[in-house]
Nucleic acid binder design. Structure first.
Lengths: 223, 223
DNA sequence: TGTAGGTATATCGTATACGATCTGGCCATC
DNA sequence: GATGGCCAGATCGTATACGATATACCTACA
């Protein structure tokens, strides 16, 4: 994978296509359940089917795409049950990882986290909701990466990416953005101070409040 | 992915190759760090490079293979740090998932878990260590699958697969197998009785003891 | 009129072929 | 004698091409 950890492989077509198609799925440009035709995508991007297939298979591994042998690929459908799982898994992993990150962060990583928080705040203030999803993920990751646990970071990165499609659904509510913003500031402050216990508590509360907002939005949207 | 959840896709070459190469990596037939040449593998299996590439990319997503653009694939190296992470993640996820599974298992799933435990025990008793790794993973999964949390099951399946290469390293010690066997029996008994609290405790203890044995073996093996 | 079977078409999965990229060694230069 | 650039070989990544598979429609028949 590499939703955001992408260091290698950016020199190949399939890697670029992976990033592009992932962005379109996460942003909703490719709707849940819609078909992803290899020939059509290849023609659209001006490449052959092979890098397209490799990209789609990669995204299948990330849980964004579903594949049916000899019948094609489609964007994975959303479901309340999956959302439950994503947030349950994040609750189990993220608070601890953030606390670890706080304990081990060096100066560069600390200012990177501050920068990520600021960029997210500014994007929300400017109403750039399109960027907000990626910036939110980047901020959360910036708190985790200093823990130097690459496998944990990768799992969390995937979960954050999966969560994005759901979070998008309830970003509209007026109050949501400002509350999330306050929670982010508090989280960052405790992280910078290394208040381990308070930090895990804040992280837990933030994930839970996000999930609660989402559950409410889903309940309103779907009968 | 589908180390063991493989329902679809078994009708394609790349899916079969994925399973085959995965088995060879997990069993140690392809040693950590060794190169995986596309042309050589294609020739060996009598297919073209394309399904080979797809299989290797899939295994990269599972964390068993590493890829360097334009330089090829290799079996991922082992490291004590990664082992730490794997077991830390399992500790965070598996006890809860097993407890959920116990609460929701139907009759068929209960006997499937019993069967998986028995097969593992018999393989160990017969000294069939090659099969033991897969059977151990299957047993752990059989406790989790009834929770009907596919994403959680997939994450755990991947972690169990990653763990296999490390566990193999310390399966030799005489006492290990019998202690693991006792732990499995106790785990299964509590699971069947639905003793949620005791169950999570047993699961935690089992994962920790496996990890402790491994850490000791690694300390002995590597300076 | 409803259902089973066969055929056409679209799409997939893989083989073949080829240009692109990397590595290692040789030679020129400092 | 060490350093830096060039060349050859091997390997990779992708385009093209083709056989394989599934779906949908259409026909024949109960």
């Amino acid at each position: 994978m590499e939703p955001a950890l992408a260091k290698p492989l950016v020199r190949t077509m399939s890697a670029q296509l992976t990033a592009l198609v992932r962005a379109r799925i996460v942003s909703g440009a490719y709707a849940p359940g819609s078909a992803l035709l290899q020939d059509a995508l290849a023609a659209e991007f001006g490449v052959s089917k092979i890098p397209v297939r490799e990209a789609l298979l990669q995204l299948r591994g990330e849980g964004l795409v579903e594949v049916f042998a000899h019948r094609g690929f489609q964007v994975r459908a959303l479901s309340g049950a999956e959302a439950q799982e994503i947030f349950r898994l994040r609750l189990a992993l993220e608070p601890g990882a953030i606390a670890h990150g706080a304990a081990l962060a060096d100066e560069a990583e600390r200012s990177a986290a501050e920068a990520a928080c600021r960029e997210l705040r500014e994007a929300l203030a400017a109403g750039r909701l399109e960027e907000a999803g990626d910036l939110n993920r980047a901020f959360h990751l910036s708190l985790v990466l200093p823990a130097r646990q690459p496998l944990t970071a990768e799992v969390l990165d995937r979960l954050l990416t999966l969560a994005q499609r759901y979070v998008r659904l309830h970003l509209q509510p007026r109050g949501r953005a400002s509350r999330a913003g306050r929670e982010h500031e508090a989280l960052l402050a405790a992280w910078l101070r290394g208040e381990s216990h308070r930090l895990t508590e804040l992280a837990r509360a933030h994930i839970e409040s996000t999930h609660a907002d989402l559950a409410r939005a889903l309940a309103l949207a779907a009968p």
